[in-house]
């Protein structure tokens, strides 16, 4: 790889990194605003116009707060926990194709950090690692609420991971590849996978909610039972990391869902638009479309949060094991039969 390539990659990485941070920050703002909207309140409105600077203020506060490590906690793991959580959240974006390649001069710049042939497995691996952050943090706190929260988180994540994996398998049968870049290309125009895999998408989105510990599956941090769940003992930036990780995860899973099922950067009439806007702005418009889809998903996440009440733990597990897994398997069988018949 040439030096220029490396520089471009680094640039892309940093841009994506910053974008995810910003989106995560403003997701907190959006969450509050949306919550306020649903509850017929105003929401944050002091810092800046419409409270637009509120995330900045929150961030600054995180930096300035006192850092508490409880006496009984396992110091090293107590720090590792949140760090791991945010790290895994941040590296997931590496394989997501943000758009078609941009051609500047004779240099083709792919809008994807790297297109590896096991992209989906990579995402899964990273997501699975995420639970370690929660688990380690909760265990290191040496607090009963934290431990319970952590165990719940672990148990819930792994439960839904099975159905997530199974729902993806049906998709793979359709696409025949594990590379996200290729999957995105296949959905050129309006050939979105959601049309072929509606059930699969449904399963996937439910699992995505559970994996990101979002309501209605936010048992690990359920305030009414567990105070703060796994991050009860956390303060300052370490708490910030956990909260941040949640929003980044939400962003990444939205991106993954959009890419896998909703066509990614593809949109009907993209060839026409591509010709119209040229080799630089055409792909970038696709990227814009992708982000619109992502924002829609993020909005959906929030909408659900403020609409649907939290599950009970047994309901949560029942849903995961007894409903989603059989459905996912049925989906695989159905897909298999249909594809074989149509061939």
């Amino acid at each position: 790889m040439e030096l220029a390539d490396i520089a471009i990659k680094f640039g892309l990485i940093i841009v994506i990194f910053l974008i995810s941070l910003v989106i995560a920050m403003y997701s907190t703002y959006a969450e509050r605003k949306i919550a306020a909207f649903f509850q017929d309140r105003v929401g944050p409105n002091r810092a800046g116009p419409f409270g637009i600077l509120q995330p900045m203020a929150d961030g600054a506060k995180m930096f300035l707060k006192e850092e508490i490590i409880p006496a009984n906690a396992t110091g090293f793991l107590f720090i590792v926990g949140p760090s791991l959580a945010i790290m895994t959240a941040c590296i997931g974006s590496a394989v997501i194709p943000w758009g078609q390649s941009v051609t500047i001069g004779d240099r083709v710049i792919p809008l994807q950090v790297t297109d590896i042939n096991v992209g989906i497995l990579y995402i899964f691996g990273v997501v699975s690692l995420g639970v370690y952050g929660v688990m380690i943090g909760g265990w290191a706190s040496n607090n009963k609420y934290s431990l319970l929260g952590a165990i719940r988180a672990a148990s819930q994540n792994i439960s839904y991971e099975i159905s997530m994996g199974l729902s993806i398998i049906a998709l793979l049968m359709v696409t025949g590849t594990l590379s996200l870049g290729e999957i995105a290309q296949q959905q050129h125009g309006w050939h979105w996978n959601v049309l072929y895999q509606p059930l699969g998408f449904l399963l996937f989105i439910v699992c995505a909610f559970a994996e990101t510990n979002r309501t209605p599956f936010d048992l690990p941090e359920c305030e009414t039972e567990l105070v703060g769940g796994y991050h009860t003992e956390y303060s300052s930036m370490k708490l910030g990391f956990y909260l941040f990780a949640e929003y980044i995860n939400m962003f990444i899973s939205s991106a993954v869902m959009a890419t896998l099922y909703w066509g990614g950067y593809n949109y009907p009439g993209m060839d026409f638009m591509g010709n119209l806007l040229g080799p630089v702005w055409g792909p970038l418009f696709g990227t814009f479309v992708l982000f619109m889809k992502i924002f829609a998903f993020i909005f959906f996440f929030m909408w659900v949060r403020w609409t649907i009440p939290r599950f009970r733990y047994d309901q949560l597990m029942d849903l995961g094991w007894k409903v989603l897994i059989p459905l996912a398997i049925a989906n695989i069988v159905l897909t298999g039969i249909v594809i074989t018949l149509l061939k």
């Binding site: 990194f17 790290m87 590296i91 590496a94 950090v113 790297t114």
Partner: peptide, 15 residues
Amino acid sequence: YLPIIFQMLVALGFV
């Protein structure tokens, strides 16, 4: 896979 390592390094640096 090199970019992934880059990204990990960036994330680690940030943390």
